[in-house]
Simulated assay, not measured.
Amino acid sequence: MYQLPNTHFELDLKNINEKLAQANASQIVSWAKAEFGSHLVLSTSFGIQSAVMLHLVTQVVPDIPVIWIDTGYLPKETYLFAEELTNKLNLNLKVYQSHLTPARMEAIYGKLWEKKDVESLNLYDRIRKVEPMQRALKELSAKAWLAGLRQNQTQFRKQLGYVNQQGEQYKILPILRWNSRDVYEYLKEYNLPYHPYFDQGYVTVGDWHSSRPLSVDDDHERDTRFHGLKQECGLHLPTSKEEAQSLDSSQL
């Protein structure tokens, strides 16, 4: 059984990740609750498999603030799915949006997603996702952030540990090493729903203009996002060059 010190000083990530390798997902959430208390938050996209983390975490921390970044461009089905899960799991939902409305952003910058270049997509993500998330973390006094990232989702995520430093917060990833079967079995065990788009062939879903179903020509599920030009929206990327360099050494 893993044993970790309960300290509020700078964390020894290498030591913690080695010990958390012996813990299951619920135990990792329990450790995070003990370590960070009321300064712990959870993020969700209400995507295909979001019910897993929402259920897993709220079984341990029922009143945890759940941050949802609403870009204003989500499919109707995502908004309905969010309503369903919020009511089903009694979520303490905190919705954040860009200060720029979609109409104002389009007037100033145009429809950035239609330009289909990485620079335009990155600007879109900074405006509609990254800035609202940073504001949420600050306003909620978050010291740690639980997220449902998995190693097999992107190249960047393969190098992450269960606990990582990102900006001023620690990022905690309880289902980091889960695979698709683990996700399916959890959803089935607790009778939890997939996003409605799963039945239409989507394996991941974000904004309506930058998501599509999986095709036989796709090498990776994230090829269905951002016109295949990039894998990450920026929410989970390092906030400085120093953080990026720190990921070069193993944290597991």
Rank of each mutant, 00 (worst) to 15 (best):
P174S: 07
G167F: 02
K143I: 10
Y186W: 09
L176S: 06
Q169W: 00
Q155Y: 04
V163H: 03
L176E: 06
I172A: 05
N179L: 09
Q134W: 13
R157Q: 03
L187M: 13
E168M: 08
K171N: 00
L149F: 08
K171T: 02
Q155P: 01
Q159H: 11
L176A: 12
K158I: 13
Q155G: 03
G148I: 10
L140C: 14
K158C: 12
D182M: 13
L149E: 04
K143R: 15
V183S: 03
E168C: 08
N164H: 03
E139N: 15
Q153M: 07
V163E: 01
L176R: 08
E185R: 07
R181W: 14
L146C: 00
Y170W: 00
Q159P: 02
Q151K: 15
M133Y: 11
W178F: 11
Q166F: 08
R150M: 07
I175Y: 01
E168A: 12
F156Y: 08
Q165L: 13
T154K: 02
W178T: 10
A144N: 09
Q166A: 12
G167Y: 06
G161V: 05
I175H: 00
K143P: 12
Q153S: 09
R177C: 09
N152R: 13
L137G: 10
E168D: 11
Q166W: 02
I175R: 00
S180V: 14
L140S: 12
R135M: 12
K171S: 01
A147W: 07
I175G: 02
R150D: 05
L137E: 09
G161Q: 07
Q166G: 10
